[in-house]
Write a protein that binds this DNA or RNA. Structure first.
Length: 417
DNA sequence: TCTGGGGTCCTAGGACCC
DNA sequence: TCTGGGGTCCTAGGACCC
């Protein structure tokens, strides 16, 4: 059987660990730049706050209803997530960490599914303080359905096993709530008079393949109890690394944009080096504010290119990103967002060399390692490259940031007796 | 004033080969 | 009048996820 363990309102629950006074009160967590709502406590949901809602639109509502607001603290959430996943490994060695707040567990000895589910809920809450839900069924897609039911049960567990139960559930379930059916396929399926999950399992296979794709067909099979998405235990190596941000205000000049792109390229390189990888390809994009202007004053620039040889050299990556930026930059636009993507990644110990370019010299490597050492020891922005933003201003707006309770010595909670 | 960020997979069609 | 058949690889764009 497949157990899907899903944390309840994960980011909000993380904040509440250190703020027990916020139990039973409406709480929300915001996206980067304090832009949108990305996590809501059940009380906030009951007040009608929607997922992805822009904060500025409901500023007064937040105030009037005494809703507690946090900026996102992903460092903290990541640490808590790691702890949860380590604890879950005690229940099964066949575990797939699917996202920051979800994991699939394959459990073979399934004598008492309900008891085991309750045990998982109890254990994770006891060790980490995070409330989780457990959905159990025979395939990943069915477990996904089970866990949504679990969220509304008093003990946060739900077993979806009997054939007749499954049929009943599928009949009651809107197709848009199936894992793998997004807004576009939903629209298309509605147009073809397919509304419930039960309608969907009775569709024609060739039609699905012709009009959609193989994964949609797999989803259909999974709903019938035929497993098509196996649990992938090995943590596959990363295939791409992105750093992108919306800017606080608009940017008009090339030079200002270059500072941002240099920053993102530098951060991206740091992530790359942390994973002990090198990149062969790099992409840059810049975009105007899609909400603000008419279509003709909007512009989206995107470009990709390859290095001669895979690299994780800060200087080389930042230099190349600026060279690409020059090719897509256009005057007379107000830029609102930009990003750097590194792809075609390989391990730094095994990449392909080339006769076109000498490998980094010993001195270059020493320089790169020194940058890492200094930034890791004294703060991530101590050493920068000259094209980066050198003024001491924070790029992100995070006005309601909680302390780094468990990943910074300065922020360790004090207990006063 | 103000609207997030980071990923993966699939496929049609183009470029190329013999 | 009439111009083959069978492949592989790459990539942009579209779909999805949290």
């Amino acid at each position: 059987m497949i157990f899907l363990v899903d944390c309840n309102n994960f980011y909000v629950s993380c904040e509440r660990i250190f703020r027990p006074d916020l139990q039973n009160l409406p709480v929300v967590v915001l996206s980067n730049n304090d832009g949108c709502i990305i996590s809501r406590s059940s009380e906030a949901k009951k007040l009608g706050i929607k997922m992805g809602e822009p904060v500025f639109k409901i500023k007064n509502f937040i105030k009037n209803n005494n809703i507690h607001v946090f900026s996102s603290n992903f460092e903290l959430y990541g640490e808590i997530s790691n702890t949860i996943m380590l604890e879950l490994k005690k229940f099964s060695s066949e575990i797939e960490v699917y996202s920051i707040d979800e994991a699939f567990l394959k459990i073979k000895n399934n004598s008492n599914l309900l008891t085991l589910s309750k045990e998982i809920v109890y254990h994770i809450k006891k060790i980490t303080g995070i409330p989780v839900s457990v959905g159990v069924s025979t395939t990943k897609t069915l477990s996904k359905i089970a866990v949504t039911f679990a969220k509304n049960k008093p003990n946060n567990t739900f077993i979806l096993k009997d054939k007749s139960d499954i049929t009943e559930v599928l009949k009651s379930l809107d197709i848009k709530n199936i894992w793998g059916i997004g807004s576009n396929y939903k629209k298309y399926l509605y147009q073809n008079k397919i509304f419930s999950a039960y309608d969907f399992i009775n569709t024609n296979k060739n039609w699905i393949m012709k009009k959609m794709n193989i994964n949609v067909l797999r989803t259909r099979e999974e709903l019938k109890g035929i497993s098509c998405f196996p649990i992938t235990i090995s943590n596959n190596p990363k295939k791409s690394i992105t750093v992108s941000r919306s800017f606080k205000g608009d940017i008009h000049t090339y030079l200002d944009l270059e500072k941002r792109i240099s920053d993102y390229a530098f951060i991206c390189s740091r992530k790359l080096r942390k994973e002990k990888l090198t990149a062969y390809s790099i992409s840059i994009f810049i975009a105007t504010n899609r909400y603000k202007y008419h279509a003709k004053s909007n512009y989206y620039g995107f470009i990709s290119d390859n290095f001669l040889v895979s690299t994780n050299n800060y200087i080389e990556i930042v230099k190349f990103s600026n060279k690409l930026l020059r090719k897509i930059f256009k005057n007379n636009f107000s830029y609102k967002k930009g990003g750097v993507i590194l792809s075609n990644l390989t391990s730094q110990n095994s990449f392909q060399t080339s006769y076109l370019k000498m490998p980094d010299s010993y001195k270059q490597n020493l320089l790169m390692n020194s940058i890492d050492y200094i930034n890791n020891t004294f703060g991530s922005e101590k050493i920068k490259l000259a094209s980066q933003n050198l003024e001491d201003i924070t790029i992100l707006s995070r006005k309601k940031l909680s302390p780094q309770y468990i990943n910074s010595w300065n922020d360790i909670p004090n207990i006063i007796i």
